[in-house]
């Protein structure tokens, strides 16, 4: 180890012995990080409005229906984001596109009206950003919530039976009753009916779609990788597309 920092010992010690000076330095470091990671993003994105969808010009995003907003609250209250993400990575980063999780990467306008924004961090279950496109059927969602092993054998998703009510069939079976079979089917004379929370949650899941092309996330042409992956200094070919793909077949 060589000698360095030949500032006289005494002056160095003096500065670091003054509590207020240490505090000031820490304050400055904190303020810089706050400016860079809180203030600037807030200035850049905090007043975002609805954006237009090129090339036709429709408005995006559409606000969620009331039931879907209640469902978003159920999603939050039960911590679904601890196992599911809602962010699709761009092509070239991971296999999100190849798995059919999204036609294009997720961008800020997708979450404009959401509070909270539940992006998720771990994929114990599949990404849900476009689950409304992949699985629009409410009955499948309800079955999956009641007994995940029926729709996804081997899944580690817990059953959410408390979102449902098992009750005696009065008169004729309710049209809302789940069509269960096997071990999870109720005993004869009983039916399983979703509670309002379950219906709201399913409405929210059905509203999850982020497949419209935006300026920040145009639909890439098939076969061409956008951006830098595998290319050198050339920017990607700007050939216009006129027919955005309406979703891909899901790869399970």
């Amino acid at each position: 180890m060589f000698r360095v920092l030949s500032v006289p010992d005494k002056s160095r010690r003096a500065i670091m012995n003054q509590g207020p000076l240490v505090f000031l330095g820490v304050y400055l470091a904190m303020a810089l990080s706050w400016l860079g990671m809180v203030f600037v993003p807030e200035m850049q994105l905090g007043r975002m409005q609805e954006t237009t969808v090129p090339p036709a010009g429709g408005r995006y995003p559409a606000p969620r229906s009331g039931l879907a907003q209640e469902g978003r609250d159920v999603y939050r209250a039960n911590g679904c984001y601890y196992c599911h993400t809602q962010q699709v990575r761009a092509r070239g980063f991971g296999a999100d596109f190849e798995r059919g999780w999204g036609a294009r990467h997720s961008v800020a306008p997708d979450f404009l009206y959401d509070r909270p924004v539940m992006l998720g961090n771990v994929r114990v279950g599949p990404d849900l950003a476009n689950i409304g496109v992949r699985q629009p059927n409410a009955a499948t969602h309800l079955l999956h919530l009641y007994d995940p092993q029926m729709t996804a054998p081997g899944s580690t998703m817990p059953p959410y039976r408390f979102l449902f009510e098992k009750r005696k069939i009065s008169g004729s079976p309710s049209p809302e009753a789940l069509k269960l079979s096997g071990e999870s089917a109720p005993e004869p004379g009983f039916e399983v009916v979703p509670k309002p929370d379950a219906l709201a949650l399913v409405a929210y899941l059905q509203s999850l779609r982020a497949d419209l092309p935006l300026f920040e996330a145009p639909l890439p042409l098939p076969g061409k990788k956008p951006g830098g992956a595998g290319t050198t200094n050339q920017p990607p070919d700007g050939t216009p597309t006129t027919n955005p793909a309406s979703g891909t077949t899901p790869v399970k």
């Binding site: 090129p54 090339p55 070239g92 300026f215 956008p226 951006g227 920017p235």
Partner: peptide, 18 residues
């Protein structure tokens, strides 16, 4: 603020748009 991965510059995003 309009440049997201994988694009590296605004020009690239613009060029990729129809």
């Amino acid at each position: 603020p309009r440049v997201y991965d994988p694009y590296r510059s605004y020009a690239q995003v613009d060029a990729a748009n129809p």
